[in-house]
């Protein structure tokens, strides 16, 4: 874990209010693993007060890492206005990464912006012998991000949109059973409702999955006990016991 000033070297707007930032920060890029996050202080003032956590979208393993974010409030709005050259106060990499499991199929399930940590995961799964299938669910076609990069990387992709504007109409969780098979390794990130439904279906099929959760963080390093979620034997901290959890540890 490092606290450093990461230099913003590229800022791309993928859509209105959706950005990919590329940062130069060798210490973080070398050690970041899929599922981990960086905690960014977007302003040196107290508005907003707390850091903002972002999943690592990708890392070149040497110098640069990327994040994907949507402007949701004051913090992301300030971050979105930063220009290349800006030095950004960054703590990371933080949290528990995905554990890459040997399965006949890697079934990766993304809901909306939940694609971010999974993108990094798929980067690493590419080096494994078994195929990767991404089920990518979004509200509408305009909310699909990084599809070209995903396709170019050799990932098989199945898209779901609520309004049918791309791929299959419906929610990814309506169809997930069709894609599950014995011995597949399942990884997921998305809205809590999606994670709940998905986990139920995965468990009903006698399988398990790893899920990456989002929460309001306090310290980001495990000290404040503010970001907990319910697990079978009490509460677990999203920031350092997660954000990636085995689905069978969680209580919904």
């Amino acid at each position: 874990m490092h606290k450093l000033l990461a230099k913003l070297i590229d800022a791309q707007a993928l859509a209105s209010g959706v950005f990919v930032h590329t940062y130069h920060a060798p210490e973080i890029s070398r050690s970041a693993e899929p599922g981990q996050f960086v905690n960014i202080r977007v302003s040196s003032s107290v508005a907003p007060l707390l850091r903002r956590p972002f999943s690592v979208l990708s890392s070149d393993g040497r110098e640069q890492f990327r994040i994907l974010f949507e402007v949701k409030g004051q913090g992301t709005e300030i971050l979105s206005r930063k220009q290349p050259g800006a030095e950004v106060d960054c703590v990371g990499p933080l949290g528990q990464p995905f554990q890459i499991k040997a399965g006949k199929l890697n079934l990766v399930i993304a809901g909306g912006m939940g694609v971010a940590p999974l993108f990094f995961l798929m980067q690493q799964l590419r080096t494994k012998p078994y195929p990767t299938l991404l089920l990518y669910g979004v509200r509408t076609k305009a909310c699909l991000y990084l599809v070209d990069e995903l396709v170019a990387s050799g990932v098989q992709l199945q898209i779901f949109t609520d309004d049918g504007s791309a791929g299959q109409q419906g929610m990814v969780t309506d169809f997930v059973e069709e894609y599950m098979q014995p011995g597949c390794a399942i990884y997921a990130c998305g809205p809590m409702e999606m994670i709940k439904v998905l986990t139920h279906k995965v468990h009903s099929a006698g399988l398990e999955c790893q899920v990456s959760l989002e929460n309001q963080l306090g310290c980001g390093v495990g000290a404040c006990l503010g970001c907990v979620v319910k697990v079978h034997d009490g509460y677990a901290r999203v920031c350092c016991d997660g954000p990636v959890f085995d689905s069978n540890a969680l209580e919904f």
């Binding site: 707390l50 306090g218 404040c224 006990l225 970001c227 979620v229 509460y235």
Partner: peptide, 10 residues
Amino acid sequence: PGNPPPRLVE
């Protein structure tokens, strides 16, 4: 065990 979440509001 502590209080039920959510436990933080900024």
